[in-house]
């Protein structure tokens, strides 16, 4: 751990921090800006791992590219920092290649819903058994604040300098309408609720989709003159509306408008693998040989 680089972590004793065991402390300090929301979300996820006592040796994390795409690199799990937009199909391969793994995708809005949008809807449709955490900061952060598929109408970005005129995705509605059996949204202000949702989702199965709204103070807030990260947290406090079970059609996010939060969908639904097993058992009977939990024809 570097002690010379400026960092919020400089004075933290790694061994004493409660989530240190879940992190690669040898990679601190991280690259995220001061008051970025991603670190908080990582903390919530690590706490949820601790609470649920899942087998960390069997837990993998997959990220794409971007600010949130760096999460995999800081988690002390089997961690895959993949290509831009392909975290979900990569994770699909991991899960199907070794069915006993608990696989989490942790990436950003541009990565998962922009360049990777097609994979998002198909994974939800198939109900692939992965937990998908999407951090939405309304902008492409790492590349300098370009317009995203989530940028609210009229918000400025570096490629929409006069304000965005495109319709953004309502991501929770997208995931729900594609068939995801578990869909929730929080902001990174909702630490306890978010942690609880992560913990619950870790014990569910199927394509679990959790959107977390997070501030990008360096770009989104600056380009839109929204103040500091703290101001945005205050905004979340005043404008987040918690409504469990809400119709996701109502969950659109306008510029500096209310943010509907809560758990919108939580249903039982067979996963891709369960359907496959059920179907082949029915059609092939004794001839069906499912892949072993530890993978296909692993010898020795």
């Amino acid at each position: 751990m570097s002690t010379t680089t400026q960092s919020l972590h400089t004075n933290v004793d790694a061994s004493e921090h409660p989530i240190a065991p879940f992190l690669r402390m040898d990679r601190m300090p991280h690259i995220w800006c001061p008051t970025c929301g991603i670190g908080t979300i990582v903390k919530c996820f690590a706490s949820a791992l601790e609470q649920t006592k899942v087998d960390l040796d069997k837990t993998s994390i997959v990220s794409g590219i971007g600010c949130t795409g760096r999460v995999a690199g800081y988690m002390k799990l089997d961690a895959f920092h993949t290509t831009h937009g392909r975290a979900i199909p990569f994770a699909t391969g991991l899960k199907l290649g070794r069915p006993e793994l608990l696989v989490t995708v942790f990436s950003g809005d541009g990565d998962l819903s922009g360049i990777g949008g097609n994979h998002l809807i198909h994974a939800a449709r198939r109900n692939i058994d992965i937990l998908c955490i999407l951090v939405n900061n309304f902008i492409y952060g790492m590349t300098g604040g370009q317009n995203a598929p989530t940028t609210p109408v009229s918000a400025r970005s570096s490629t929409m300098p006069y304000g965005n005129f495109e319709h953004p995705f309502n991501l929770v509605h997208l995931a729900a309408s594609c068939g995801a059996p578990y869909v929730a949204r929080w902001t990174c202000l909702h630490i306890r609720r978010l942690t609880k949702t992560f913990a619950e989702a870790l014990t569910r199965k199927g394509f679990r989709f959790i959107e977390v709204i997070a501030p990008c103070s360096t770009l989104y807030a600056r380009l839109n003159k929204l103040g500091s990260g703290l101001d945005l947290m205050r905004f979340y406090h005043d404008n987040a509306e918690i409504k469990h079970g809400a119709d996701t059609r109502e969950a659109e996010i306008g510029f500096q408008d209310r943010i509907l939060c809560g758990k919108f969908v939580d249903i039982e639904k067979p996963t891709f693998t369960e359907l496959m097993h059920e179907h082949y058992t029915k059609t092939l009977g004794d001839r069906f040989v499912p892949m072993k939990p530890e993978g296909g024809w692993i010898h020795e």
């Binding site: 895959f80 994770a91 391969g93 290649g97 070794r98 892949m291």
Partner: peptide, 18 residues
Amino acid sequence: EDELASMAAVVGAAWTGT
């Protein structure tokens, strides 16, 4: 859903030893 995904899934699965 496409070849981008196919190749990504193959690389992912290969990391399980399968």
